[in-house]
Write a protein that binds this DNA or RNA. Structure first.
Length: 220
DNA sequence: GACCCTTTGAAGCCA
DNA sequence: TGGCTTCAAAGGGTC
């Protein structure tokens, strides 16, 4: 966190959402799951991803049927056991148990300030540099982020703060731990519901083995 | 098809 | 409490 942050709450309302936020969902829209929202929830309409049709109404499915952008329902392939061979196929017990478990949606983390900045500026960098590789683009964006003035960065920090606040209101019981592949439930039950995630690569140390510093295989 | 790469920041975890 | 790890986005590349 930079030392110049946080901003005074009074300045919040003047922040203009980054371009494109109002009209397009940030997260992939998936089949209609909604979590019940607190009916008393008040939402600052200057918020982007959670605003407009995303603004929670009464508890229950939203009238639009459009889920919250942070929710990603795990894709489940449609199975059509119409053939005899399908019907004769007896699934192992653990698979049957899997299918019986309610499909918990994957609620994503709210975006931090830099992520919000990336979403806004990525298209510009792509257009300017005609790059497509995200790794290269993100390097540029990282440098640009550091080149931003404090005021400009503060705008994104404030947006991110509001994103977190709204996320907390929308999903009171949610924790970032829920998305950890190394969560307790996964360790014990192996029932991780979230997105599979890569391991963090090893620290760039010159090892005597000469092996390339690739990702560790430290999946739990 | 899963994961890597690359960035920053938030948050969880562990000693 | 501090340091480490994971995950958010993105899409081409790799295996």
């Amino acid at each position: 966190m930079p030392t110049f942050y946080p901003l005074s709450p009074g300045g919040v309302g003047q922040i203009t959402p980054p371009l494109g936020w109002q009209s397009q969902p940030v997260y992939p829209i998936s089949s209609g799951f909604r979590q019940p929202y607190p009916s008393s929830l008040s939402v600052d309409t200057s918020m982007s991803r959670f605003s407009h049709h995303m603004i929670p109404g009464p508890p229950g499915p939203h009238t639009t049927g459009i889920p919250h952008p942070a929710i990603v329902t795990p894709q489940v392939k449609q199975e059509h056991p119409h053939t005899d061979s399908d019907l004769m196929h007896v699934k192992p017990q653990h698979e049957q148990r899997k299918e019986q478990e309610p499909k918990r949606p994957h609620i994503k983390k709210p975006l931090n300030a830099f992520m919000l900045y990336m979403k806004e500026m990525r298209a510009n960098v792509v257009a300017e540099c005609t790059l497509k590789e995200s790794a290269a683009i993100n390097q540029i964006l990282g440098r640009r982020w550091h080149a931003l003035s404090r005021e400009e960065q503060a705008k994104y920090y404030e947006l991110a703060r509001k994103e977190r606040q709204l996320h907390m209101q929308l999903y009171p019981g949610w924790s970032a731990r829920d998305n950890y592949r190394t969560s307790i439930s996964e360790k014990i039950c192996g029932n991780f519901k979230g997105k599979k995630k890569k391991r963090k690569r090893e620290k760039l140390q010159e090892s005597t083995s000469g092996a390339a510093p690739r990702m560790t295989a430290a999946y739990i």
